[in-house]
Every structure is written in C-alpha cells, then in structure tokens.
Computed example of a mutant assay.
Amino acid sequence: MLIWERPEPPARSTPSPLDRERIVRAAMRLADADGLEAVSLRKVAAALDAGPMRLYRYVDTKEELLDLMVDAVYGEIRVPEPTAGDWRARVRSLARGTRDAALRHEWFADLLGGRPHLGPAAIGHLEATAAALRSAPGLGDDASALMRSMETVNAYVLGVIRHEIADRRAERASRLTEQQWQAAAGPYLNRVLASGAYPTLAHIVANAAQRDPAAAFDTGLDMLLEGIAAASRSGPGTTTQN
C-alpha cells in the first residue's frame, strides 16, 4: 500500500512527539542546508531527538520520505482558482510558483521527472495545470493534444529550473560570481567570436538584451504558451507547412 493510503499511526505521549509532518519538515531542513545527501532516516531521527526505529512507524523507506518531501513542496505552490484570469494567467501562476519553490528548495528539482508524483498536493498541481490548458481555445477535449501540451510546459519549467540551479551550484563551487566568471572568460570568448567562425553566436552576444532570470523565464514561457495557442487554433491533426 502506498504511503498516501496508509493511515498515520496514533500519536504517543513522549518527550519527543512525532508525526509525518514533523518528520518531513526536519528532512526538508536538512536538505535545504546540505542537499539530499544529508537526508537519511538516521539523521532525521537525530534532528528530532528520536530513535531511528521510531521513524519506521511513520515511513517505511527513505524513498517514501522523499515522496513526502516533494509533496510538501508542491503544497507550498499556490493553486489559482479555476476562474482566476484566463488560461495563460493560470499556467503562468503555476509555473512561476514551481520555479519559486524550487529556488527555495534546490533539491526539489533533483526529484522531479521520471514517474509522476502521486501525493495529494502534486496531483492537485497537475490537475490545475491540465484544467488551465484545457481552457485554451481549440484544445478542449482533445486528450492527446492536452497531454502533449502538459508535457511541453513541464519540460520547459523543469529545464529552466535545473539550469538555474546548476548555475547556482557552479557559482558556489567555484566561488566566482556570475560577473567574475564573465570577466575571466570574456577575453577568450571575444577572441573566439572575433574569428568569424560563429557569426550567429557573435550576433546574439553583441545584440541580445540581458535579462534577469525571472524575466527570462516569463519570456520563454510566454513564447511557449503562444505556440500552444497557435497549435490549438490550427485544430487536431493539423501540421504547419513551411
């Protein structure tokens, strides 16, 4: 039986009371401070001043604990009301909330992807995203198109989040800020681009406006949603010929 269907054990009167929420919050604090490698049932038990065997009354494995942690983060993401703004506004709200949550809990992105998460908050987030996209004109009840749109949005959000977090981790590991790294790498890059071998990249570097990560995230998401809208307007099974 999955943990989502397994009732929580009754509370006991002890000097160090336990429940799943306390266990999950303690594990999240460890992960926020030192990454997922810092999370184990033994370390969580020590943080709660409890014996490790007591935790097994609440979670059977570390994998279950990680599932609970992921769902707790999903629970931090505000789900917009179904009537709050148009479909794009609701998708943007969910995507931005996911990004914000991942930047607060960097380990969250490491646990996304692969098999879907089945906790109540995760399923609620998925339902809200699906419902918002279903409201796109022309998408409606085309389940296959809706699934492709959800996969595309999720791939974009996860890809950007992982890229941002990788940049953060690289900066911490190298102890160089983004500006310091650019100053160190700049002369080499300028020589490479001046060779004329990479004209398109040279054009982008010379002329593209620099945006902060949040603005870049929003711009890319808007481009993606415009593509979904255009595809949905063209109707099911329609392809665009060049």
Rank of each mutant, 00 (worst) to 15 (best):
L189S: 01
W87K: 07
E5T: 13
R88E: 12
A136I: 01
D67A: 14
R6A: 12
A209V: 07
S93A: 15
E64C: 04
D218S: 15
L111T: 04
E151Q: 15
A102C: 03
A95W: 03
R175Q: 12
E64G: 05
P137E: 04
R115T: 07
R57Q: 15
T83W: 03
T129N: 05
W87A: 15
W4D: 04
A27F: 02
A194T: 00
Q182D: 10
K62P: 01
G97P: 08
N190E: 14
L176Y: 09
P15A: 06
G159W: 00
G138Q: 04
V39Q: 08
P15D: 06
G113E: 11
L176P: 03
G85R: 09
G159Y: 00
L36Q: 01
L68E: 01
Y56H: 15
A84D: 14
L94Q: 06
P116V: 04
Y156M: 02
W87S: 12
E5P: 02
E81L: 07
M150C: 10
E8Q: 15
T14F: 03
A231D: 05
S195A: 09
A132G: 10
S232M: 12
A122M: 05
A216I: 05
R211T: 05
T177D: 14
A197N: 09
D100S: 14
A122V: 00
L158M: 07
R115E: 13
G227V: 05
S93Y: 01
A27K: 01
A216M: 10
S13M: 11
G186R: 04
A155W: 04
S144D: 09
A202S: 14
A145H: 01
S40P: 02
A145R: 07
R78N: 12
P7W: 09
D49M: 09
L139R: 06
